[in-house]
């Protein structure tokens, strides 16, 4: 498994404290985590319905699913703000809940801080209560993200809130980073800085990461594999590289409406007179099958972005039971 960031350019200063603390403090490498058959219901809604996930040490996993699929609920269960109805989250051996939390960095989609605090107060609050808080690293993050310490939390814009949430969640150099839509509302520069920072964290301390995002391009840069989630369950887990390189879209012309495409495709739909097939795996085999049944068919290969690949998978999941 490669821990190298997808993009090598960085503007993050390599501080000695960061490396020294990370290694000497025994934090090198990430935390492994196993979620087994997690179930949680809110009234009649099954937010989690047998959710299984294994995170290896240092692995970076993207969570992709439509709204309400259970991604945020999963994060809340991991950090303990939700109590599971069934299932278990297995922590690394010998680690208590409190010790686990001291190594987890959670960045929620909405800033979690008291409205009456200033940004500086919120940071000081976390500094006092987080035993692994790294002042130097925190100061560097503040500088990089341009945090105004005197601004009240309630007065911060959405983008500034996201920046502060990032500082609060990661200022103790966590071994397990949980990011729930961390970049909503941030500007392009900050977006870039955050991605760089995360990449450096993976590279330099080998932090394990679980990232839920609808910005699929970010996942392509940061994750090793992408887990597709629907209705509280993991539907599919695909290596990130394969999402782009082994997913192909075919436009098939010259087949009649009502034509039944070959089985096991990611997604099928019609665009004007052409059948649009999204295929995972060996595209030549599929082409051969089509041509054997419809010799006059004209097949056109269309390049796919990761966004399109994921979107087609999500569309494909809609027909699943």
């Amino acid at each position: 498994m490669s821990h190298a960031p997808k993009e090598t350019e960085t503007r993050l200063e390599p501080t000695p404290a960061f490396f020294a603390g990370g290694l000497a403090g025994g934090l090198a490498g990430g935390l492994a985590l196993t979620c087994k058959a997690l179930a949680l219901r809110f009234g009649r809604v099954h937010a989690l319905a047998g959710f299984d996930l294994n995170l290896a040490e240092g692995e970076s996993v993207g969570l992709v699913g439509r709204n309400g699929a259970g991604k945020s609920t999963l994060f809340r269960c991991i950090v303990g703000t939700e109590v599971l109805d069934a299932g278990a989250i297995e922590l690394p051996a010998g680690l208590s809940r409190v010790e686990f939390l001291s190594r987890v960095g959670f960045v929620p989609d909405t800033l979690s801080a008291y409205d009456w605090m200033s940004a500086g107060d919120a940071i000081a609050y976390v500094a006092a209560l987080q035993p692994r808080f790294d002042s130097a690293w925190c100061a560097q993050l503040q500088r990089l993200l341009g945090i105004d310490r005197s601004a009240k939390v309630r007065d911060l814009s959405r983008g500034m809130q996201a920046r502060l949430a990032f500082v609060l969640g990661l200022s103790h150099r966590p071994s397990l980073v949980l990011l729930d839509e961390p970049l909503l509302g941030v500007d392009a520069v900050t977006h870039d800085v955050v991605l760089e920072t995360l990449a450096r964290m993976r590279c330099e301390i080998g932090a394990t990461m679980l990232i839920a995002s609808h910005q699929l391009g970010d996942l392509a840069r940061l994750t090793d594999r992408v887990v597709f989630v629907d209705r509280g369950k993991v539907i599919e887990s695909v290596p990130t590289d394969e999402l782009v390189t082994k997913t192909t879209r075919l436009h098939v012309h010259g087949v009649p409406r009502g034509w039944v495409p070959p089985p096991n495709l990611v997604h099928t739909r019609w665009l004007d007179d052409a059948a649009v097939l999204t295929i995972q795996g060996d595209v030549a085999v599929v082409e051969q099958r089509i041509l054997s049944s419809h010799p006059n068919a004209r097949i056109e290969r269309v390049p796919l972005s990761i966004h399109e690949a994921c979107a087609d998978r999500l569309r494909g999941m809609e027909v699943l039971p």
Binding site: R76, V79, E99, A122, L129, Q130, P131
Partner: peptide, 9 residues
């Protein structure tokens, strides 16, 4: 979302 709840206390 809860800030204090996610801190190691």
């Amino acid at each position: 979302e809860v800030l204090t709840a996610t801190l190691p206390l």
